[in-house]
């Protein structure tokens, strides 16, 4: 089962924590909002993805299971 990341840009506060900790998963655009580099992940990466979800101060990052 693939895991995807969804970022809710309407609640994103541009803190930049996600791209700082996980530069291989996300980068910051010029306007300070993040964009995804990787899109699909497998079960083996779950712990790391949960850490990513947890570090967002605005709780704008969500995991979507497909």
């Amino acid at each position: 089962m693939a895991i995807k990341i969804r970022i809710d840009l309407s609640t994103c506060v541009q803190s930049g924590q996600c791209a700082y900790f996980h530069p291989d998963l996300l980068r910051l655009r010029d306007d300070g909002f993040p964009e995804l580099i990787a899109t699909e992940f497998d079960e083996g990466q779950r712990a790391r993805l949960e850490e990513l979800v947890d570090l967002c101060p605005a709780m704008a990052i969500h995991l979507v299971e497909e």
């Binding site: 309407s10 609640t11 506060v13 541009q14 803190s15 930049g16 300070g32 101060p57 605005a58 709780m59």
Partner: peptide, 20 residues
């Protein structure tokens, strides 16, 4: 409609670390 849309906690790199 969007109760969290305020900027009371700021925005950007200094967004309130203690918001939660």
């Amino acid at each position: 409609d969007d109760p969290r849309n305020h900027i009371a906690f700021g925005a950007g790199p200094h967004y309130c670390v203690g918001a939660n």
